[in-house]
Amino acid sequence: MSKTTEKTYKRSHEPVFWGLFGAGGMLTAFLTPVMILITGLLIPLGIIDQHYFSYEKIHGFATTWYGSVIVLVLVALPFWHTLHRIFHALHDIGINRGRDWQQVICYGFAFAVSVFVFTLLLQMLTAPSLFGF
């Protein structure tokens, strides 16, 4: 066989972001509508009484280990979905300048908010409660 120069292939790191995008998209598709319905419409409009969403109740939930994990996932994971889409949509609408920076800003934003929420929950979980108990 003649020795042809084989093309060099460069592996993309997209699977990491695509995985998070998919997980976030799944969560967003199944749960975001009902979450918006509850926190944005039913509670503020008083259709569900506000005592079901009281400070004691939510704080109590968010300061259990499982509750804090659930809150973290519900709040932070959608960012990895939406910022991935925004990053690609920027390309779609023809904003091609500084794609590297766009990537850093988009996923950096998702990362920063995730860390922010994680830190808050950790702090609530470990700090002695100021109210109640």
């Binding site: 292939y9 460069k10 592996r11 993309s12 997209e14 695509w18 690609h88």
Partner: peptide, 14 residues
């Protein structure tokens, strides 16, 4: 899979 794994492979698709 080397072709698939590239940016120009499947990852060019949205």
């Amino acid at each position: 899979m080397k072709i698939v794994n590239q940016e120009e492979g499947v990852w060019g698709c949205t």
